[in-house]
Design a protein around this nucleic acid. Sequence first.
DNA 1: TTGTATTATCGTAATATTGCGATAAATAAT
DNA 2: ATTATTTATCGCAATATTACGATAATACAA
Lengths: 109, 109
Amino acid sequence: MGATRTDHYTDKQNELALKLKALGHPARIAIIEHLLKVNTCVCGDIVQELPLAQPTVSQHLRELKEAKLIKGDITGNSVCYCIDHAQWKQLGKSLTSLLSKVTDNACKC
Amino acid sequence: MGATRTDHYTDKQNELALKLKALGHPARIAIIEHLLKVNTCVCGDIVQELPLAQPTVSQHLRELKEAKLIKGDITGNSVCYCIDHAQWKQLGKSLTSLLSKVTDNACKC
DNA sequence: TTGTATTATCGTAATATTGCGATAAATAAT
DNA sequence: ATTATTTATCGCAATATTACGATAATACAA
């Protein structure tokens, strides 16, 4: 074994888990924070923002892309990365839906 | 290599990444959703909720506990699990802070 | 054409995760 | 005391992740 058994869960559970998994690494959090901070597409300065080698950064970017959290389009020599706003809106809904259920009461532990 | 280089990131980035990583598995999403649904501490029926063997569920619970997303206290024969409300409140703040920065504009991709 | 810059991919090593059977530990029930 | 019941831990195999050097692929510049 070793592979996650996605077939036993709902599509929503699997999708949310995939996105959160993609965000579950400090380098990828840092990438997202940077993209949100500059608030535009960024072409080429992401490697300089991180304390990692270029292939490693490229790999993290691909994972964020596969999780549909960012978009990346080729523009001439470099690649333009930016937040996938639609997907983040959807993720925001899933998360606030979860978080809204967190109340103070009812725990006897 | 293979281990995440946490020393290169801020404490906040590492903490957020750790919690999101803990949530980055559908079984653990399902556990959290169940705990939020019943809205109280749950003693003993979590294994029945999941399509996994008992040791596997126990392992997932431990990971959620290590990420401080749930609390577990021994009550006699069984163990009482519940949401760690304080920690979720903090996670909620981090996430809404991130999500609030997601706007529609400024992307030319 | 020949370099230069930028990003992606391949290959590989180290480590982590996932899942489960077997077993232990602890309390409850008989 | 003996037998369930419940949860945790150990050990293992399969797979995934993380990181990077080397190298390819592509577009720009000279």
